[in-house]
């Protein structure tokens, strides 16, 4: 009985210690991004989505907490709703459970499980550097937007200078049948198939 109790105590102490360490790491990550101010930047947007033909565009964007970003530029402007530099704070501000997954080199990976039924995201795998807590990769499963992953590149600054976002996208051929008669220049997958879209954002912070 005594031996069993000793093992049980040891086991729970390991679990609790691990959880506390998890909490500390995530707390530091949260602190870093919760202090993030509104971001003003120029972004060079490159969209590579099947069925969308749009040239690269330079746009001016102001990300403000809890608000729709202010986008300015010439002509029609597209900015992805997910995977932009401002969204770390949004992700980390909600209520979630963090689980340590693995460590590779200087980076660690945690799985976040949302505990907020109102939030759009369900789970998120985030990779970040142990040294300065820069998030370098996220894979987010969301209710509205499917799975989208983003890779972030940093220079010496705290904010990413580049992000490459890939996501599920339903192909855009459906409405075309109603108004566009010239079809068939390119072969597309079947209507209900989901393909992957890729967007590259290069940031210059102002």
């Amino acid at each position: 009985m005594r031996t069993q109790l000793t093992f049980a105590l040891l086991f729970f102490s390991f679990v609790l210690t691990g959880q506390t360490q998890n909490d500390l790491v995530i707390q530091k990550l949260r602190e870093k991004y919760s202090g993030q101010k509104d971001i003003k930047c120029q972004i060079l947007v490159k969209v590579e989505v099947e069925g969308i033909h749009i040239p690269e565009k330079k746009i001016y964007v102001e990300f403000q907490k809890g608000k729709k970003p202010v986008i300015k530029g010439e002509g029609l402007l597209l900015l992805p709703k997910k995977g932009t530099a401002d969204q770390f704070a949004e992700l980390l501000s909600s209520n979630f459970q963090a689980i340590f997954l693995q460590k590779k080199g200087a980076a660690v990976c945690y799985k976040l499980v949302s505990l907020d039924p109102a939030s759009d995201w369900i789970t998120a795998d985030i990779w970040f550097t142990e040294k300065n807590y820069n998030i370098i990769e996220t894979i987010v499963n969301s209710k509205k937007h499917g799975t989208f992953s983003a890779l972030y590149t940093y220079s010496d600054k705290e904010m990413p200078i580049k992000s490459v976002i890939t996501f599920d996208v339903k192909k855009f051929k459906l409405p075309l049948k109603f108004i566009g008669r010239e079809q068939g220049l390119t072969e597309y997958p079947e209507n209900d198939k989901v393909s992957r879209g890729k967007i590259t954002l290069n940031y210059i912070y102002l």
Partner: peptide, 17 residues
């Protein structure tokens, strides 16, 4: 707005459409 619904699910669209 209706025709661009598939795009607006994933993108913010700004400009004089």
């Amino acid at each position: 707005g209706y025709l661009l619904q598939p795009i607006s699910e994933n993108f913010f669209i700004e400009g004089n459409m």
